[in-house]
Write a protein that binds this DNA or RNA. Structure first.
Lengths: 343, 343
DNA sequence: CTGAAAGCGCTTACAG
DNA sequence: CTGAAAGCGCTTACAG
């Protein structure tokens, strides 16, 4: 037998009802549908609620109402500030909309979950009204799990062709297409796209945008694949640049772009005079690099907010009696920040 | 009336019990105390659980057992990779220990919560077994909220003198004391400590360590306070360095250290020959800076793991019938990574 | 080893 | 406008 089960000594709805001389039902109404309660009663109860610092136990509330006002956020890793910033945006919007967050870090390196099904069943059993899914490597299997989820899912910061999967993302195709075109218009011909060895969907999209612009201009497409780790890519960059130097390098990840700049400088290739470098994220070190890094700026905070907003709409729609149509595809604007690594 | 309340069409314990021809109680036992169930029965039920993909509804489970197997993680902001990495560590350990995470981003800039009490009551009403609290600016009021929490709290990445408040942190006093001493031993005399304009507890601790080492050596203590924003501190660094250049600058935040390096280089102060610079975090850009930045390396991932481990111990102790004594103060080791910004 | 029943803290038709 | 009662999906003494 438990000595004292009341570890969680939070005020309970019963205590409020007793103090106010009303039934539980009335207290519950004040919390959920205040307009249904007579003004005098309501105000009295509200006063007592405030006095006692009563807040409904969310578990009980969820169970009774089958709404958890909680959303799951699934991320691969938070150490990357691009993801952290995204979650900040999600959190800000969730807070505004009255949602709480459950966080799932599906770090493949850490073998967090046995497999995707394990992750999903954990999420679903934790009871959430919706899911924000952030994943670098979306595949068929994951798309299916998303489609079969009882709770609405928004793919965040990843685009997905499937029309049935809501997603919020930057139009990287357009972004890279346009920056490539811009550099072509400025008279550059030898333009490279530097991507990662490991294939990520986003990076492949960037490659497509670049490729299209180059082909339209009748220029030679040249994509380099290097490791993400600065220690490893440095020696590869050294080999590459010793052999040939492009007029412009568009690099999928800022840290790789900075690494490229560092190697170039060590080889006395002057930037931006002999080579211009462009990043695709606008990470923290973009402005700390020397020369500072020109970037496609992706407003990740906003992206998070938009994703949470969309998810909220989908949740409302799914909980509504009527058929509601929600446009499940959102594109967030980007802009270019010109800095010292370009002329 | 609800058309169909079963939005959450997860398998329920009833369905499993029915399929197995046993009572709910037995299914529950298989989930929670399998040793209490006869092997044959247990195996049959386990098979059905697997077939149906049954996972107990966590809300119901929490409510019934008054254990949520959920821990709250409170952070000021995730965009800072030092915090993101910490949460990655927390998540990895939580996952290992069977805990889920609720995330609270208390971003003062975003006015996320009205005040600290609002935040705390939200956390507590969300029902958690424990709280990992990450906050740059701990004060009396917050300490009191922590002490009055029904759930155990671990102050993470922040040290706190109060013996009743469990905390996990790096010994920044010792770290900065020792690196200062080391630089003194190497023959340097004019050593500065560069901190932020805004006062943070951690930074004040670093100042103390530095001050002690300097005073012990009979050297002049010189602490500079600059803004955190690189755009703003650059001009201030320019003024400072135009007037005087130290042999060594120990900088509380890596981004500020890199900014200092950039300004120094623009003034043709050669690093490390004329000035050596040391950071206190080992952020991502420490190795991307040129010269790369020598750092006190704080293993934030480990820090997160240790914090979660401690919290788990405290939770177990609080749920246990017996009196258990848990040492609530944990110190995580640091090391120094020597790079190009020092001789 | 197993089942019937109470209870966790709330919400919500239903009846008044 | 308000209360009594059922129910959300589970756990856990208790009795057998």
């Amino acid at each position: 037998m438990k000595i004292d089960n009341k570890q969680n000594n939070q005020t309970t709805i019963m205590e409020v009802a007793l103090a106010a001389g009303v039934s539980l039902a009335t207290v519950s109404r004040v919390t959920n549908h205040p307009e249904k309660v007579k003004k005098a009663t309501r105000e009295k109860i509200e006063r007592i609620i405030k006095e006692k610092g009563y807040k409904p136990n969310l578990n009980a509330k969820s169970l009774a109402s089958s709404k958890s006002t909680t959303v799951a956020v699934v991320v691969p890793e938070l150490a990357r500030s691009s993801i952290g910033g995204l979650v900040d945006g999600i959190a800000a919007c969730a807070q505004k909309r009255g949602y709480l967050l459950r966080l799932f870090v599906n770090n493949v390196g850490q073998e967090s979950y046995k497999n995707d099904e394990d992750l999903w069943s954990t999420i679903l059993s934790s009871v959430v009204d919706g899911i924000l899914f952030i994943d670098d490597e979306i595949n068929e299997e994951k798309i299916n799990l998303i489609k079969n989820s009882y709770a609405p899912v928004v793919l965040t910061s990843v685009s997905c062709d499937d029309p049935d999967v809501p997603s919020v993302s930057i139009d990287y195709f357009k972004a890279v297409y346009e920056i490539t075109k811009e550099m072509i218009n400025r008279g550059n011909k030898k333009i490279w796209l530097v991507s990662t060895v490991r294939r990520y969907l986003v990076n492949d999209i960037k490659i497509s945008g670049y490729t299209k612009a180059m082909e339209e201009a009748g220029l030679e497409v040249c994509v380099k694949h290097v490791p993400g780790d600065p220690e490893k890519n440095a020696s590869i960059f050294k080999d590459i640049l010793t052999e040939d130097v492009p007029e412009v390098a568009i690099v999928v990840r800022d840290s790789i772009a900075v690494s490229l700049i560092n190697v170039a400088k060590s080889l006395s290739i002057s930037i931006p005079d002999s080579m211009q470098v462009i990043g695709c994220q606008n990470a923290r070190y973009a402005e700390l690099a020397r020369p500072s890094l020109t970037c496609i700026n992706t407003p990740i905070f906003d992206l998070g907010e938009v994703a949470m907003d969309l998810l909220k709409e989908l949740i409302d729609a799914s909980q509504s009696e009527e058929e509601v149509n929600v446009d499940g595809k959102r594109i967030v604007d980007y802009n270019i920040i010109w800095r010292g690594s370009t002329k």
